[in-house]
Structure formats: structure tokens, C-alpha cells
């Protein structure tokens, strides 16, 4: 269980995230949603210890240190691979450093995305780089896989197939936290939605609960964010009235 208690992170005087309480259990597929600047990336970086924060993040009761951090992996749109190293080189590196590295999964995903094995990563296209980033996060052998906008720049065909594949390869103990703006695309794939707004969590609901309520993810998000469907029409009307 990954437990986040009273997590707050300031950048200067501005709180990027504050009062975050969140538990992530084994096997959950969590969607982390929020507008740009809501604090999704900061939250993930705090969990991974990539930035300092107040509060606590524990993994099965233990603080996250170098001893247990290999149980977490991270796929980020900033990319965390070595640009001059080939995919094969990365595989060798992970095998050497992560005892639970999943080589079979790596090979299967490389085949699926048809990525070259021996070309340095810097020569990959942006889409290929994103795919590779996700492949390594999934192959590290981590229990908690954090993905921050992993598919920015990928075409829809690759994304949809990938979600299906992901559902097929994940083991019951593997937990995924996926931050994305592509809400509709992942709505059938995630089983819990966490909504973050201006640095704090404003909603946390399981897909099964939404189903019981006869609602869906999109509706839940719109409701939680006080989405006003008439605001576009209103804005256009105002422009019209003002003589453009």
C-alpha cells in the first residue's frame, strides 16, 4: 500500500500541492486528472522523492528511500532514458540494476511498438520516445508504476491498442497511476479516478461506485469541476451582443 499523508509542496510562496491524503492499493489502475498546473506532475515527483515536500509518503509503512524506491517506476513526458543509449543498452542497464526487471515484457512491448533495438534513443521520434519511456516503466519490475502524460504526441491507434495490451499484461499486484488529459480514452481502462484542482484533491471515486450511481467518468469530472455546458454559448452571445 502506498500512503500519502498531508503532503504539501511549495514553490516559493505558492503551494503547488497541499493537504494531499491518498492511498493506492495493489492492483489499482488510477487515473489522475486535473487542468494544466493543477499539481499532477508535482504530486508524482513528490511520491518519487524527486523533489522535497512536507508530509509523508510510505510504501507498506516504510518511508520511500533508496532501499525500496525500485518498487516504483516512472514514465514521464520529460523522458528519463539515456539519449545516447540504445534500447538494448537500456535493457542491459535495467537488468543489471533492477533485480525484478521483466525482460520478456520488454521484448514483447518492443515488438508491439516495432521499435528499433540498437539505435540510440535520441534518434527516435517523439512518439517512439514516449512509447519507450512507458515500456521501461512497465518493464522495471515495479509494484507502483507512475505515468505522467505518457502519450503526449502519440497517435490514437497506438494509444488504444496500448491500453488493451496493458490490461492484458499487468499482474494483479501492479498498480498504475496515470496522469492524462485524454479522459474519454482512458475511461474504460481505469478503475479509480482522482481529481486534482489547484493543488488539492477535490474528488476520488472508484469506477464501480460511478457505475452503481448510474454515472460515468466524464460526467463525474464535469460535475466535480462545476463544468458549465452553457458557457461557450454565453461567451459567443456576449461577443455577438458587443458587436464583436
Amino acid at each position: 500500500m502506498l500512503e500519502i499523508k498531508d503532503l504539501t509542496k511549495y514553490y516559493g510562496n505558492r503551494a503547488a500541492v497541499y493537504d494531499i491524503f491518498l492511498n493506492m492499493g495493489p492492483g489499482e489502475l488510477i487515473g489522475l486528472f486535473g487542468e494544466n498546473g493543477a499539481g499532477k506532475t508535482t504530486l508524482m515527483k513528490c511520491i518519487l522523492g524527486l523533489t522535497g515536500f512536507k508530509g509523508s509518503v510510505t510504501l507498506d509503512g516504510e518511508p520511500i528511500t533508496r532501499r525500496n524506491i525500485a518498487r516504483l517506476s516512472f514514465a514521464t513526458s520529460e523522458h528519463s532514458f539515456f539519449p545516447g543509449l540504445s534500447a538494448k543498452g537500456h535493457s542491459d542497464f535495467y537488468r543489471e540494476h533492477f533485480p525484478r526487471y521483466r525482460e520478456k515484457r520488454f521484448k514483447a512491448l518492443m515488438d508491439f511498438f516495432e521499435l528499433p533495438l540498437s539505435t540510440p534513443l535520441r534518434s527516435f521520434s517523439t512518439g517512439q520516445k514516449n512509447q519507450f519511456e512507458v515500456i521501461m516503466a512497465l518493464s522495471q519490475g515495479a509494484d507502483y508504476i507512475l505515468m505522467d502524460e505518457p502519450f503526449a504526441g502519440n497517435d490514437i491507434f497506438n494509444r488504444e491498442d496500448f491500453y488493451k495490451l496493458l490490461l492484458g499484461i499487468l499482474e494483479p499486484t501492479e498498480t498504475i497511476m496515470l496522469s492524462t488529459h485524454l479522459i474519454e480514452e482512458v475511461s474504460g481502462f481505469i478503475d479509480r479516478a482522482v481529481l486534482i484542482h489547484k493543488g488539492t484533491i477535490i474528488g476520488d471515486k472508484k469506477a464501480s461506485e460511478l457505475e452503481d450511481e448510474g454515472s460515468d467518468l466524464m460526467e463525474y469530472i464535469k460535475k466535480t469541476y462545476n463544468y458549465r455546458p452553457d458557457r461557450v454559448a454565453k461567451a459567443l452571445q456576449e461577443l455577438e451582443d458587443g458587436g464583436r
Binding site: 518519487l48 522523492g49 524527486l50 533508496r66 524506491i69 525500485a70 516504483l72 517506476s73 516512472f74 514521464t76 520529460e78 523522458h79 528519463s80 532514458f81 539515456f82 539519449p83 540494476h97 534513443l121 535520441r122
Partner: peptide, 17 residues
């Protein structure tokens, strides 16, 4: 920290790496 943020990966390895 150049071209990519491989430091994120390195931070999941032993400290002296």
C-alpha cells in the same frame, strides 16, 4: 539533465551511482 531527465532514473539507483 540534458536532452532528457535520466536523473529521475538514476535517483532510483544506489546513491553513489
Amino acid at each position: 539533465r540534458r536532452e532528457s531527465r535520466s536523473i529521475y532514473l538514476m535517483k532510483r539507483l544506489p546513491k553513489d551511482e
